[in-house]
Amino acid sequence: MNGASKPYGVLAEFTTAASIMHAAEKVRDAGYTRWDVFTPFPVHGMDRAMGLKNSKVGWFSFFGGVAGYTTGMLMIWFMNALDYPILVGGKPMFSPFSAFPPSYELTILFGAFGALGGMLFLNRLPRLHHPLLKNRRFALVTHDRFFLVIECSDPKYSEKDTVKLLEEAGSRHIEVVEE
């Protein structure tokens, strides 16, 4: 991109899991809100260092599971007992016991879709364009580097202070990323 495009945020590079975590604690304590940490693998304890709350994916999965079980039971009751009842071996038209195995499987199926779909929804993925993905240096995030990015849209953002904070946090490579 050319120099006229507007900045997206400040990118700071770290080399160890501990250094990025302490930097995250500093940024959290400084009161920034629109910032993020990028790591090649989930760093244990980072959620707390960033002040993140528990993920809400569980709710998606839970409601998926409830929907699956209900769908299974209602579907089997409708098909075998209401819409087209056929007597087989003198068994009841509908029994929660024989309907349980398929409903159980549907519980898991819908719950799994809820977990994956919820994760993608909460993360706003798929996202095939991201300012950071154009940055050459940032490609190392999937290799062995750790990055901390504070966005310009953060109310506390000022280029000078933000860069200073990240320098104090121990980063040895800081750059401004274009939109």
Binding site: A24, D36, V37, F38, T39, P40, P42, V43, M46, D47, M50, L52, S55, K56, V57, G118, M119, L120, L122, N123, L125, P126, R127, L128, H129, H130, L132, L133, V141, T142
Partner: peptide, 12 residues
């Protein structure tokens, strides 16, 4: 899917 390794993403 545009994965960046964001910790907010890792959390979910």
């Amino acid at each position: 899917l545009g994965w960046t390794g964001s910790n907010r993403h890792w959390s979910n």
